[in-house]
Simulated assay, not measured.
Amino acid sequence: MTQTLTIPTSLEWHEDYLLILNQQKLPNTVEYIKLTNIEEYYDAIITLKVRGAPAIGITAAYGLAHAARQYETNDLAEFMDLFQRDKKYLAGSRPTAVNLVWALNRLENVLEHISSVNEAKTNLLHAAVQLHAEDEAVCRLIGEYGLSVLKDKQIVMTICNAGSIATSKYGTALAPFHLGREKGKAFQVYACETRPVLQGARLTAWELQQSGVDVTLITDSMAAHTMKERGVEAVIVGADRISANGDTANKIGTSMLAILCKHFNIPFYVAAPSSTFDLSIRNGNEIPIEERTREEITIVGGTLISPENVPVYNPAFDVTPHELITGIITEKGVLYPSFEESIQQSIG
C-alpha cells in the first residue's frame, strides 16, 4: 500500500481540551492525548510529551488560558491572583526555552485593560489561539528564507527535532525540507540521533519520512566522518534561546556540529522565530542550562546500560558562540554578523 505523504502536526485545540501528539511514544506508536487541566499541561511539557520551543510556548499558553476558564470566581482581584499563581507554575516547567515565558507574558498582556472576569477569560483564549495561528505563518516564512540560503545546497545535516511537531506546522530548522518537498526541491538530510533522548532518531527521522523527505540517520559521534565522506554542504539547527550577541542555546551536541563546520568550512545556520531571542541576556554565559535526570543517560529502553552508581552529568542544552554561526534564519529575514547589530535592528 502506498504511504500518504503529509507534514505531521502536534497540537490541536478543541472546545475544552488541547489534543497533543505524545512524542514520548514516537516513532512506534502514534498516540494523541487530551490535556484537560493545568497539571496535565505541566506534565506534558516537563516529560517531553510535547517539546520544541515554539510548541512548548503554544501549549503553555493554552494551558494558562484553559486553567483560567476554570476559575470559580467573579472577583477580578482574586482572578488575577490565581492567574499569577498558574503562570509561575507553568513557567517553571522548562527553564531554557525562552518561548515558554514569552508566550505566558503575551497572555498576561491581554489582561491590562479588562473590566470583568468573563472578558479576561475570553481574551486569554483568543490570545492563545492567535499565538498558535501566528506560529504556523512564522514557520512558513522561516522555511522560505531557509530555502533561499540553501538554494544551491542539497546535502544538509541537522540535530534534535526542530520540525513541524516542535511547532504548529513546518518547524524551524526542518521547514526548508518540508517546503522544499512541496516545491519539488530535493534535499538529502543527515539527522543526528541526538543522545540522550534520541529526538533525532525518534522524531526527525520519522517526521521527514512522513513528509517524503530523503533522510539518513547517523549517531552523533558520526558527524565529522559523515561531513567529510558524504559531502555535507550545510548544517541547520533550531534554537531554544538566542542572546543579544547571537550566542545560541540548542540541544546538547549542537556546538559540536558548529565547531566541526568551522574545521570543514561548512556554513552553519540557526533557524528560529523572533520569540526565541532574549535581548535581556547579553551573551550565552547568562543562558540557564537545564539539567535533566541521570536515568536519561543510564537507561535505554528500560535497560540499565551503565554501572548503577556511576555519577552522571546530563545538561540538556549547550551554547554555540555567535562567531561559529553563519546566519540566523528568522521570519523577518536572515541575520548575518555582526549579530549584535543585525539582531538589534531586526528583533530589537
Rank of each mutant, 00 (worst) to 15 (best):
S116Y: 05
P95G: 06
K87R: 12
S116C: 08
W102V: 09
V110W: 07
E112T: 08
L100S: 08
N99E: 15
N118Y: 08
H113D: 15
A91T: 14
A97S: 06
Y89P: 02
K87G: 00
N118H: 09
A103P: 05
I114V: 15
K121L: 04
S115N: 15
S93G: 15
A120M: 07
H113N: 15
E108M: 05
H113E: 15
V110E: 07
K87Y: 01
L111G: 04
A103L: 01
K87E: 01
E108D: 08
A91N: 13
K87W: 00
H113M: 09
E112R: 08
K88G: 13
E119N: 11
A103G: 12
K121R: 12
A103K: 03
V117L: 10
L111S: 03
L100T: 03
R94S: 11
T96Q: 06
E108C: 09
N109V: 07
L107A: 00
Y89L: 11
V98F: 06
N109C: 14
L104G: 10
L111W: 00
N109P: 14
Y89M: 08
A97Y: 04
A91K: 04
E112K: 14
A120C: 09
L100I: 01
V98C: 12
I114R: 09
R106C: 01
A103W: 06
T96W: 08
E119T: 03
V101R: 11
L111A: 09
N109Y: 13
L104C: 12
N123I: 07
E112D: 14
E119P: 08
A97K: 00
D86P: 04
L107E: 01
V98S: 12
L111R: 02
Y89F: 10
K88P: 11
L104M: 12
E112N: 14
